[in-house]
Design a protein around this nucleic acid. Structure first.
Lengths: 395, 395
DNA sequence: CTCTTTTAATTTAGAGTCTATAGTAAGAGG
DNA sequence: CCTCTTACTATAGACTCTAAATTAAAAGAG
C-alpha cells in the first residue's frame, strides 16, 4: 500500500504541534503554561512543539505587559509579522487578492482586478498580483489559497465545470498556479471557502456541523460535518438548486422542469421581477425595492423564500445542522428576509430537526475563505487528525 | 481539558494494532508477511501488534495447507473459535438474539422471543438469552450489541423516543444491560445498525459514503459518510418521512400536512390499499397482490414509489452517495420495485448527482448490524482513527 | 540591597515505540 | 546432507513521551 507508514515516533510530535496550533486558534494567544493545561501534555512537550512551530514560522513569540509574580511568560500567537498567506477569489466579473496573517485577518484591503478573458491571462494576472504582495518588504508567504466560483475537484486540484467562466473548465489550476508562483497553492470552491472561513473566524466558530446556503446564480449548500467539508462519494454533495420543487414547472437550463433554481435563485427572481415590473432589475435593485416596501417585489421575494424554505427544510431534516449560514447578496442587504425564511422553514420542518439550529447571515466572503483554506492546510498538513469514535459502555 | 493526553508512545502500537485488524477485515485471513506489505510497517512491528491481538483474543492463528517453498507461514483470522460477540435486535413484536464470531458471521440461528411488555421483563429476557449463549461451552463473549427500533442517543447510550415501544422512551438501556450482563454493551438505532453491517459484510463493503433507506412504519435514512455514521449536531440527521411532499396534503401524525410518510410509508400504503380494496391488507399482502399483477395495487405502489423517489432525490442531491441501500419488506419481496424507484429518481435528479450511485436491496438485518456494531467497537476502541486531510499541492 | 517566593523554562533519566539489520527456524529441492 | 527460500526473532540506534530535578527571571519582604 503506502510505501512507508506514517505511524512512527515522530508522528507523536507532529500531532502535538497540531494540537498546539488548534489550541491557539481556539483560545487566542497563549503561554506555554496555558497550552500545557489546555492540551494535557507535559510542559516539556509543549515547549518542544512550540520551538518547532517557531522555527517553521507558524508561531511568533511576543512579550506581554506582565502583571503577576514570578518569571513572566512569553506569549505565543499565530505568526502575523514574520509570515503571511495570500488569498485569491476568482469570481465571474472580478478577481480579488489579499494577504493575511496566519490568524486569518487580512493585512491589506483586497486588490480588485477585472476577470481576464483567457486562461493564461488569468494565471498571469494572479501571478503579478501575488508577486507584488510577496516582495522582500513583506513577511514570508507560506501558501496561497484560491476560491473559484465553479465546481472544483478539490482532491485533484482541478476545475471540474465552470458554467460562468467556461475557459476554466477542466483546467489544473492548482498545479498551474503552484508552478507559476513557486509556492504551495490550493483551490477551493467558493461555497466551501465560506464554510471554512465561517468556521475559522465567522459565525460557526468551534461548530462542527453546519450548512452554508449559497444563493447566487444557482443555489447550493456547503456542508461542514464533523469539522470537515463533506464532498460525498464523487464530490458533488450539496446540490440544492436542481431539486424538483414543483412537478411540471418551468423549464430549467438543466433540462428538467420545476427545479428550485427556476423559482428561488437570485437569477430567477430578477428575471420574474423584471418581467412583472417591465424593466430590467438586478439583485441590488430588488433589495432596494424590497426595503422601500414595493408590494410586487415583496410578494415575489416572499414567494421565493417560501420555495427556498422547502429546499432548506429537506437539508435540515437530512443533516440536522447546528447552524445554517446564508451567503447571499439579497439576504445581506435585507436581513429581515432571514425571519421570513425561518418562518416558512418552521412551517415545513419537524421541530426536533430544527431545534437549536440558528439561521444567520454569513460574516465572511470567499476571499476570507481562500485565506482560511491555506491556514487550515498549513496546520492540518502537519499531521493527520485523530478521531475518537468510542461508543462503548464501560462495565 | 483531558486529564492526560492520548499522544504517547504507546499510541503508535495501538494504531498499528488497529491497522492490522482493519487489514484482516478487508482482505480476509492473512499472514504476518502479507500484513507487512499491506500496512507498510516493518515485519517486527506487525509481529508485535499481532501478538498483542492474539493475547486479547481478537485474532486466532491457524496452520494452512502450505504450498510454496520456504518456511510455511501461520495465517491469522479474526477470532471465531476462542471469542464471540452477541447481537440483540429489539423490534416491535419480537426480540432476536444471536452469537457470532468476530468476523460477523452468526454462529447460530437467531433465537426469537416475543417482545415483553414491560422494561424489566425486557432486560431480564435479554439477560437470560445472552447468558444461555455465554456458558462455558461457548467461546468467551467480548461484547454485546443491541439494535433498537427507536430513536437512540447513541453517545449517551439512552433510548430517546420509542414511538412503538413506549416503555423504552428515555431508558438508559446501554447502562442497564451492561450492568445486568457484566459485559460491555452498546445500543444502536436499527437504521444505523443496517448501515454498519452493510459496510462490514454487506452491499457496501469498503464503501465510505452511502445511504440506507429504511422503509417501515416511517421513512428514514441512515447516513454513512467518511466511514462513519453521521448523526448531525443533535443526533437527528437522516429524517426523511416528515419532509413536506405536497402542500396542504393529508394530515400527518406529526401535526403537519403532506409529509412524505403519509404518501409513501408501508403503513400509509397499506392504509390506502385497505380502503380501496375494501379489506385489511398488510405489507405481505401488498407484496403478493403486486407480484400477482393486481392493477389497483400496482397503481398505488407505483405512485408511492414516485413520491418516495422525490424524497430520495433530495437525499442524493445533498449527500451524493456511492450507493443507496433499501431496507424494506416490500422491496425485498418485490425486487423489481427497485427499477421503478430508480426510474422515478432519474426523472427528478441531476445526472451528475446520481451517476455512479447504485440502488440495491439490503443484504443484512438490524440483528447483523448489532453484531457489526460490537465488532467495530472492539476494533475501534483500540485507538482513535487517523484521518488524513491534505489538499495541498506540493511545489 | 539582599534574600525569599513564585512562576517559567531547560535538562536529564527512564520507559516505550519505531526502523533497520543481522541472525535463527523450518520447510522444499537437488 | 547441503543449499535455497521464506518466516520469524533479537538487538542496536533514533525518536518520542513523562516525571523530576535544575536553572532563569521576575516580584516582594526585610
Amino acid at each position: 500500500m503506502s510505501q512507508t507508514s506514517i505511524v512512527q515516533p515522530r508522528l507523536l510530535s507532529r500531532l502535538n504541534e497540531r494540537l498546539v496550533l488548534h489550541a491557539i486558534q481556539a483560545k487566542g494567544p497563549s503561554t506555554r503554561a496555558e497550552l500545557t493545561d489546555e492540551i494535557g501534555v507535559t510542559f516539556a512537550t509543549v515547549a518542544k512543539a512550540v520551538s518547532s512551530l517557531l522555527q517553521a514560522q507558524l508561531l511568533e513569540e511576543f512579550d506581554e505587559l506582565t502583571v503577576g509574580r514570578g518569571r513572566p511568560a512569553k506569549r505565543l500567537r499565530l505568526a502575523v509579522d514574520e509570515s503571511q498567506v495570500i488569498g485569491v477569489a476568482i469570481e465571474v466579473d472580478e478577481v480579488l487578492v489579499a494577504a493575511a496573517g496566519l490568524d486569518g485577518e487580512p493585512r491589506t484591503t483586497a486588490e480588485v482586478l477585472s476577470t481576464p478573458s483567457t486562461y493564461p491571462e488569468l494565471v498571469n494576472a494572479i501571478r503579478q498580483a501575488v508577486e507584488s504582495l510577496s516582495t522582500h518588504e513583506h513577511p514570508k508567504t507560506l501558501g496561497i489559497g484560491v476560491s473559484v466560483a465553479a465546481q472544483i475537484d478539490e482532491s485533484a486540484g482541478r476545475v471540474a465545470v465552470a458554467a460562468n467562466l467556461p475557459y476554466l473548465s477542466g483546467k489544473p489550476l492548482q498545479a498551474d498556479l503552484s508552478e507559476a508562483l513557486g509556492i504551495p497553492c490550493s483551490i477551493i470552491r467558493d461555497t466551501h471557502a465560506v464554510c471554512v472561513s465561517e468556521r475559522l473566524r465567522g459565525a460557526a466558530k468551534n461548530l462542527d456541523n453546519f450548512l452554508v446556503l449559497h444563493l447566487g446564480v444557482g443555489i447550493g449548500v456547503g456542508v461542514m460535518m464533523g469539522g470537515q467539508i463533506f464532498f460525498g462519494q464523487y464530490g458533488y454533495a450539496g446540490e440544492l438548486g436542481h431539486t424538483t420543487a414543483v412537478t411540471d414547472g418551468e423549464l430549467c437550463h438543466c433540462g428538467r422542469r420545476g427545479c428550485l433554481e427556476t423559482l428561488a435563485s437570485e437569477w430567477a427572481l430578477s428575471g420574474r421581477l423584471s418581467s412583472r415590473l417591465g424593466r430590467r432589475v438586478n439583485v441590488d435593485d430588488i433589495a432596494r425595492l424590497y426595503l422601500s416596501g414595493d408590494p410586487t417585489t415583496r410578494q415575489e421575494v416572499h414567494e421565493a423564500c417560501r420555495q427556498l424554505a422547502l429546499g432548506v427544510s429537506h437539508a435540515v431534516h437530512l443533516f440536522n445542522p447546528g447552524k445554517v449560514i446564508v451567503y447571499s447578496r439579497l439576504f445581506r442587504a435585507c436581513p429581515e428576509l432571514l425571519l421570513v425564511l425561518v418562518h416558512y422553514i418552521e412551517e415545513t420542518t419537524l421541530p426536533l430537526s430544527y431545534q437549536g439550529c440558528e439561521f444567520v447571515n454569513a460574516t465572511t466572503t470567499p476571499l476570507d475563505g481562500s485565506i482560511a483554506r491555506v491556514i487550515s492546510n498549513l496546520t492540518d498538513s502537519l499531521a493527520p487528525r485523530l478521531l475518537r469514535e468510542e461508543r462503548h459502555q464501560a462495565t
